[in-house]
Design a protein around this nucleic acid. Structure first.
Lengths: 363, 363
DNA sequence: TGACGTAACGCAACAGCGTTTGCTTATTCT
DNA sequence: AGAATAAGCAAACGCTGTTGCGTTACGTCA
């Protein structure tokens, strides 16, 4: 089960690193890659040899930069692999096909019936995946599913809440693998989102938080280049952080939860106050884990992103006045409404990159 | 500068892992270690060979466990290496000598004058270190310094606050290296603390938070076995998390900061309310990063640890009622008042273990 | 036009990791 | 005493990236 030798992991990590650099789009030279990975150019030749044999990379001509042999350039081959990403919510499923670089090459969205029973839900997801599997080129690696609420990534089970919930305890991954016969991965929406965002800004989100505003509030973290999953794959649930003692009643039974306050403010049209709630959470989070980038994403945030980002920037500037060396960049997600679906697809692609994932196939 | 081959890192990681297992105290067999590291017993022989050559481990007899050749046991040699740890506050310096297992073999505490100028401070620290250097056995690896407030670990500089602060911008590491002629490491107190605690509970704190209550409030994280340091080595500052909008005025200029509320409650003897503040922070933190262990430490907390821990346990039970699979263990630090000093010493020891640290020596 | 310097690159030998295979050693059981 | 069992060692192996050296392809200058 375990890879025969730890050298595999060295190689895997280097392969993944080269692909990550190449994913930025620009053709790269051996020297660039050697610099980026901290290995000799000769090692890069071997790594590129492996990747080219798998069809993931290809030569991209050469440039003359003075005397001497011209530099040979290499590029990633986007169409060599692809993955399907599904974003599941209570009311709809958004699906995308992403190529090896994480670019969306196709998308579909369907509405689903309220409180759909599990077998029907699986069939809906499978049908969506089958339709998408005909789109795009390259070897199809599998299906990633991102959904809100507690998810056990290792087992691929949706844990559900104690409130009446028809999907509670559903073995979504196992059932989808059986229905589709291809590898499937299940993850929490906020974590899928940060993976997707990390892919579209390679190298920039080593220490970053992604604040996700969908039906609830989520926040996922990338610290030191690693996505935080937590002891029970339960990280990211900031929705019930209390921001106002004795505030608005929340469905969780308490008062002043961030997501209750946020939604209540939005409903009564007080965008400024909703933004304030968001800003409070972000500032606390920056203080705790010291991220230098905060990305805002999720369906609910796009309509009001300007005042929200301004509020967050203001709160950070105000709150970090004593620590001027701490600069935090606040930005909007580059993925739009595809964010979570494409993130789930990227998690599948990471498996091909040689990174550890919870992707599990049939048999 | 860079290690000649990545194989060094494989070896280094394995060496460190073996030492981490051996640190638990019980003698271990080749088979135990092979199981723990996920490598073959044959590889363990090679790893142990390296470690024994360096004097870090030694044989510990053999036991007969049925038919066949008896199992040879190995143990760590605590007295083979040692490190000095200094815990610097505004009023005193606590120093310890820790052996290779992170056990304290000696400690000293001295008071320091209020608002001591930097050159004097360095001489105080150096004198403390020189005195400690005569205690304990084994090769002295260096000095670790843990202190509150913003610290730039990479450069070894205390950044200070914008309030009048005589130590602001002091190049503490460089000056200490020059004064002592041995490697020195400077880190934030809350991070030193979690390193110290991780050492005394090997393997148990893979996903843990350490809440430090000294003059201020701190919280450091160990996620997936890695200590969170942040983009500007500024993680852990939860003291100014707002828990009560329009609460007690804080020296930072805002109202309702956790540490202001906590201290105000303590001063008027309302331990229950102070505990509530702590519990709020812990619950939010658990929701965000999903740690399964919370350790309480720091001078201020020991006198009231019972009600504080109960309050935290209560808040967690209450707040996680919907997620019964999330169990969080709440415990008191095992290090007592040595916590930060010993943690700083452990950070120095980690360098010998082959782990990356900010330990920098002379020349 | 041709010799020379330069820079990128490939081939081959190398060091070091853990793995595999086969043998040796030390104990218990028959 | 002899067989069975389990631990440990030694050597060969596969794999990584590194090092050293030769080859290729370009610009420059006589």
């Amino acid at each position: 089960m375990r890879p025969s030798t730890p050298l595999d992991r060295v190689a895997g990590a280097h392969d993944a690193a080269v692909l990550a650099v190449a994913r930025r789009g620009e053709p790269v030279s051996r020297a660039d890659l050697a610099e980026a990975l901290g290995v000799t150019p000769q090692a890069i030749s071997k790594i590129l040899g492996r990747l080219m044999e798998r069809g993931l990379m290809a030569g991209a001509g050469s440039i003359i930069s003075g005397p001497g042999k011209p530099t040979t350039l290499y590029r990633i081959v986007p169409s060599s692999r692809r993955a399907i990403g599904l974003h599941l919510t209570r009311t709809r499923v958004r699906g995308v096909v992403a190529d090896l670089t994480g670019e969306v090459v196709a998308h579909r969205e369907i509405e689903i019936g309220h409180r759909q029973p599990v077998p029907e839900l699986i069939e809906t997801l499978a049908a969506q995946a089958r339709e998408l599997s005909g789109l795009g080129e390259g070897l199809l690696l599998g299906v990633g599913v991102g959904m809100p609420g507690p998810v056990d990534v290792a087992s691929g089970v949706y844990r559900g809440t104690s409130a009446p919930d028809p999907w509670r305890g559903a073995e979504i991954r196992r059932m989808l693998v059986e229905a589709l016969g291809m590898p499937v991965l299940l993850d929490h929406d906020s974590r899928a989102a940060i993976v997707g965002e990390t892919w579209s800004q390679p190298g920039l989100l080593r220490n970053a938080a992604l604040v996700l505003v969908e039906d609830g509030l989520g926040a996922s973290l990338s610290l030191d280049g690693t996505i935080v999953r937590g002891a029970h794959s339960h990280s990211g649930e900031v929705g019930h952080t209390v921001v106002r003692m004795d505030g608005v009643a929340c469905e969780c039974g308490r008062r002043g939860c961030a997501q209750a306050e946020f939604m209540a403010s939005l409903e009564r049209g007080d965008v400024a106050d909703a933004a304030r709630v968001l800003a409070t959470i972000v500032l606390d989070l920056v203080r705790l884990v010291d991220v230098d980038r905060v990305v805002l994403g999720g369906r609910t945030v796009y309509t009001h992103h300007e005042p929200m980002m301004e509020a967050i920037r203001g709160a950070l500037e105000e709150g970090l006045r004593e620590e001027p060396w701490v600069h935090v960049e606040v930005m909007l997600s580059t993925r739009g409404t595809d964010l979570i679906a494409v993130g789930a697809a990227c998690e599948v692609l990471e498996h091909e990159y040689g990174l550890p994932t919870a992707l599990v196939g049939p048999e």
